[in-house]
C-alpha cells in the first residue's frame, strides 16, 4: 500500500509492465553501457569514472529497496560506510588481497543489514525511515569513537594491493577494469533480482501489502530479504570505493551520504532499472565540476532536489520511459 513508505513509491515509470521485447531493449542498453565503459577512459579520467561507478552501484542498491521494495531507508550510509571501513582495515592492517578485503566489507554490510533491517521492518512508513536513520547515526558515532576506524582521520593510505595476489591495481587503468567488472556484475544481479520470482512477490507487496499477506506471503520476511540484499550491494559499492580511493572516512557513514543516495535515485528515477546510474552520474559530475564553488554545491544540490520533487517526480529516466512508453 502507498503508506508503506513515506513517499509514493509507485511512480508512473515503474508502473509499466516489462514485456518480453522490453527485456531485449534492456539487454541492448546493458551492452551499450559495457561499450561505453570500455570507451570512456579514452576521454575521461578513470578516477572520476570510478567514482561515478561506485556511487551508481550504491544508488542501484538503494533503488532496489526503495523502488522495488517500497522501503525508504534514510540510513544507507551505514552499510556503504561500515563496509568501506572494514574493507580498508582488512586491506591495510590484515594484509588482505583486494578481492578478500572487498568481500569482508560486503559481508559486514550484509550482517549489519540483517540486524538493522530486522529492527526497522517492524515499522511502516515514516517510522521505518526514522529507525533506519537512528540506527545509521549509531553506526556513525561508533565510527567516530571506535579505535580501528581512525576517528576524524579515517583509514588512509589503504594499499590497493594485488588482485588475487597477482595483478597489481596500483595503476588506475587496472583498477578501473576491476571496478567496471564489479559494477556490471552488481547491476546485472540487481536486474535479475527485480525480474525473479522473488522480485515479483516484492512488487506485489510494494503495491498492496495486506493483499499479499492475505495470499499467504509473510511480507516482513520478504522485506527483510530485500533489505539485506540492498545493504549487501551498498556494502559492495562502499568497499570498492575504499580500495579505489585508498581511504575510508567518516564522510562515508555520515547522514549526508544517506541523503545523497536518495537524491541520486530520485534524480535518475526511482523504480527504474537505469535511473540510479544516471542520477549518480549527474550528482557526482555536479560535485566534481562545481567543487570550486565550495558551499554552493550543497545549495545547488538542494535546489535540484526540490526541482525534482516538484517538477518531475519520475526523475530523468522515468520521464524518458514515460515519453517512449517503455519501462527503463
Amino acid at each position: 500500500m502507498a503508506d508503506t513508505a513515506a513517499i509514493d513509491v509507485a511512480p508512473i515509470a515503474a508502473a509499466l509492465p516489462t514485456r518480453r521485447d522490453d527485456k531485449a531493449l534492456h539487454r541492448m542498453i546493458f551492452v551499450g553501457i559495457a561499450l561505453l565503459l570500455i570507451a570512456a577512459p579514452l576521454v575521461l579520467y578513470p578516477v572520476y569514472l570510478m567514482k561515478v561507478l561506485c556511487f551508481a552501484l550504491f544508488a542501484l542498491a538503494f533503488n532496489l529497496l526503495l523502488g522495488y521494495g517500497g522501503l525508504l531507508s534514510f540510513g544507507h550510509a551505514a552499510y556503504f560506510g561500515m563496509a568501506s571501513y572494514l574493507c580498508a582495515y582488512t586491506a591495510k592492517h590484515l594484509g588482505f588481497t583486494p578481492e578478500l578485503a572487498i568481500l569482508s566489507g560486503t559481508a559486514t554490510a550484509a550482517v549489519l543489514g540483517l540486524i538493522f533491517g530486522s529492527l526497522a521492518i517492524r515499522r511502516q512508513g515514516i517510522y521505518f525511515s526514522m529507525i533506519t536513520l537512528a540506527l545509521a547515526q549509531m553506526a556513525f558515532f561508533f565510527s567516530l569513537q571506535a579505535k580501528f576506524t581512525g576517528g576524524e582521520d579515517g583509514i588512509q593510505a589503504v594499499p590497493r594491493g594485488n588482485l588475487f595476489g597477482v595483478f597489481s591495481l596500483a595503476d588506475d587503468r587496472a583498477m578501473y577494469a576491476v571496478v567496471c567488472v564489479v559494477f556490471m556484475a552488481g547491476m546485472l544481479l540487481i536486474y535479475r533480482i527485480i525480474h525473479s520470482p522473488f522480485g515479483q512477490v516484492l512488487k506485489a507487496i510494494r503495491d498492496n501489502e495486506p493483499r499479499a499477506i492475505s495470499l499467504g506471503y509473510r511480507a516482513n520476511q520478504y522485506k527483510l530479504a530485500v533489505f539485506v540484499l540492498s545493504a549487501t550491494l551498498a556494502g559492495l559499492a562502499g568497499s570498492t570505493k575504499a580500495i579505489v580511493f585508498q581511504l575510508a572516512s567518516l564522510t562515508d557513514v555520515h547522514w549526508s551520504m544517506s541523503g545523497e543516495v536518495v537524491l541520486m535515485t530520485l534524480v535518475g528515477g526511482m523504480g527504474t532499472v537505469f535511473g540510479p546510474i544516471v542520477g549518480a552520474l549527474v550528482i557526482v559530475t555536479m560535485e566534481t565540476y562545481l567543487a570550486q564553488f565550495g558551499a554552493w554545491v550543497t545549495i545547488i544540490q538542494g535546489c535540484v532536489f526540490v526541482l525534482c520533487v516538484l517538477l518531475f517526480r519520475e526523475g530523468i529516466i522515468g520521464l524518458v520511459a514515460k515519453l517512449i512508453r517503455k519501462p527503463l
Binding site: 533480482i193 525473479s196 509473510r218
Partner: peptide, 20 residues
C-alpha cells in the same frame, strides 16, 4: 492471478537468482 498461483504451487519465492 499468477502471484497467488505462485504462492500455492511454489510456496515461498525467495529465489532472487532465478529468472522470471
Amino acid at each position: 492471478v499468477r502471484i497467488a498461483l505462485q504462492r500455492r504451487l511454489r510456496g515461498d519465492s525467495f529465489d532472487f537468482w532465478r529468472p522470471e
